[in-house]
Write a protein that binds this DNA or RNA. Structure first.
Length: 489
RNA sequence: GCCGCCUUAGCUCAGUUGGUUAGAGCGCUUGAUUGUGGAUCAAGAGGUCUCUGGUUCGAUUCCAGAAGGCGGUACCA
């Protein structure tokens, strides 16, 4: 007789998707609040848009193919139209502005927190589902809105918990990159060779001048033996590009001047350099010069950028759980995208904004050991089965005072209940067993203080008999006693 | 996508030159303590040795493939 097998699915998650603990969520919420407070203080208003957008609105159809780009999660609605999960918050903003153009004040300034999805291979601090926190000004031309975006970005990064020495904010411009490409004799519009050159420049930090030279020329083989095809430039052209990269300097004006020299007579290049000069001037006047550098090695992948671009990287080494130091990407970026709304409206609407990768930033801070354990709720022990209403009353009274509190609802004894409270990181437990009840009293035990005291207590007998860090008070003084215990730490 | 490493208890990992009962530390449960989280001591639970196929009398161990994980690299619209 054949036994019927019960189907039991494996509990598992798709690659790059994570469950997140209560502590991580609280840390993220706190970080988001601090970042958004900065955005709001600059006059930005919040906006929410849906997780799904029509794929054509995101601009993510593959050229000449009736299918969405591989990098976005997509599905067909019941009318066969392709929809995709948003992969950033900028494309939905452009859609929103285009759709409500006449009613919106220009410039339109909004900030937005949201989950975004990218169908890519996950890496360290890199997921397929993560949170971004953006602020953008739509309808504000260069370079003043760019300078503001960069200053606000620096403020937001600082508010998020990164001190100035922990982060490097670098600024460049798509226009000076185009100027360089023209000077080298390439067509900036040519996505092939020019794209390869820009990607090589983007790796200057990681691979250094020699690595970039290989990528500009024939190609480069990495440690794992994988070969990357190069851009095929001549030695002279490569020298030219590297001279541009070496313009980086502590003196922004000098860096921009050298970039001008390398770009020769390019008109776009000169325009980009003028904008960078204006930005650098504002940053210096506002006291941001020590926190932000003009640096030609910033490229940024998104090809919708049209002017200044910037990004923030952490300067401390990030290690994974195995203790290996890991290649960690940027924690935030931004730039100018003057053509994004034009896709819908036909008219150019200048726009600039920034985005902070909150999930990655949290990963970086956690890797540095800055995750602090969150305090749990006060736990009211449940010692006598027929006294549950009284326990609930005590918890409710604490809540009414704004103190997080819960009644123990498991089925175990006192010892296990205390272990539970310990594991929950409860700061305080409230105990009313038969002894206290008959006296009209309640015991308030300070677990945090007790943990501290236990370090100096050797024997179990001493530990038990001393009953450290707990007080028994009349029922009416419960709230006051709990508050004392909470405040004492 | 390409390259490399890895996969044995909840976690971190040993181990079996192919042989019957696969181990440790930590964690977990219970007790020493009719009502007190730490420490100590004692007892206990927990494994299709990732999966599939091959070689073999016999595979957790050898071989091949797959899946998953980690890292690098590419891509990142």
């Amino acid at each position: 007789m054949a036994k019927k097998k019960t189907f039991r699915p494996k509990p598992r998650r798709p690659r790059g998707f994570r469950d997140r603990s209560g502590e991580e969520i609280l840390a993220e919420q706190a970080m988001l609040r601090r970042i958004c407070d900065v955005y709001a203080s600059y006059g930005f208003m919040p906006l929410e848009t849906p997780a799904f957008e029509f794929t054509d609105a995101l601009g993510k159809f593959l050229p000449d193919v009736d299918r969405p780009n591989e990098g976005v999660f997509s599905l067909q609605d019941d009318d066969e139209q392709w929809m995709s999960l948003r992969y950033d918050l900028t494309a939905p903003l452009a859609r929103h502005v285009a759709e409500n153009y006449d009613a919106l004040p220009k410039p339109f300034r909004r900030y937005q927190v949201g989950t975004v999805w990218r169908n890519e291979k996950p890496g360290p601090g890199r997921f397929r589902e993560f949170t971004q926190c953006d602020a953008d000004s739509v309808g504000a031309p260069a370079p003043h809105a760019d300078a503001e975006a960069i200053m606000m970005f620096a403020d937001a990064i600082r508010a998020a918990g990164l001190e100035d020495r922990d982060v490097k904010i670098r600024v460049s411009s798509r226009k000076v990159m185009s100027g360089l490409l023209e000077a080298v004799g390439l067509d900036p519009e040519d996505k092939g060779v020019s794209g390869t050159v820009l990607r090589a420049m983007d790796k200057y930090d990681r691979l250094g001048a020699e690595g970039v030279r290989l990528l500009l020329g024939q190609g480069r083989k990495d440690e794992s033996g994988d070969f990357t095809q190069g851009a095929g430039l001549s030695d002279g052209q490569a020298d030219h590009v590297l001279a541009f990269m070496e313009a980086a300097s502590d003196d922004d004006a000098a860096a921009i001047a050298q970039m001008r020299g390398v770009m020769g007579g390019s008109a776009v290049g000169a325009e980009g350099a003028d904008e960078l000069d204006a930005i650098a001037e504002t940053l210096a006047a506002m006291g941001y010069a020590s926190r932000v550098r003009i640096d030609p090695s910033v490229v940024r992948g998104l090809d919708y950028y049209t002017g200044p671009v910037f990004e923030a990287e952490v300067t401390f080494p990030v290690q994974n759980e195995k203790g290996e130091t890991v290649v960690f990407g940027s924690v935030g970026s931004g730039g100018r995208y003057d053509d994004l709304v034009k896709r819908f409206k036909g008219v150019e609407v200048p726009a600039v904004g920034c985005s902070i990768g909150v999930s990655r930033l949290l990963t970086a801070l956690a890797a540095r050991g800055e995750a602090q354990a969150a305090r749990g709720p006060v736990v009211v022990l449940a010692l006598e089965a027929d006294r549950m209403p009284a326990y609930h009353r005590m918890a409710a009274a604490l809540r009414a005072e704004g103190i997080r509190a819960e009644v123990y609802l498991g089925g175990s004894g006192m010892r296990a209940q205390l272990k539970y409270a310990d594991k929950r990181a409860a700061p305080v437990v409230v105990i009313q067993g038969e002894d206290e009840r008959t006296q009209g009293e309640v015991t308030v035990k300070d677990l945090e203080l007790g943990a501290k005291l236990s370090e100096t207590v050797e024997s179990n007998e001493e530990w038990r008999s001393g009953q450290p860090a707990q007080v028994t008070v009349p029922e009416g003084e419960l709230i006051a006693a709990v508050k004392r215990a909470l405040g004492a730490d």
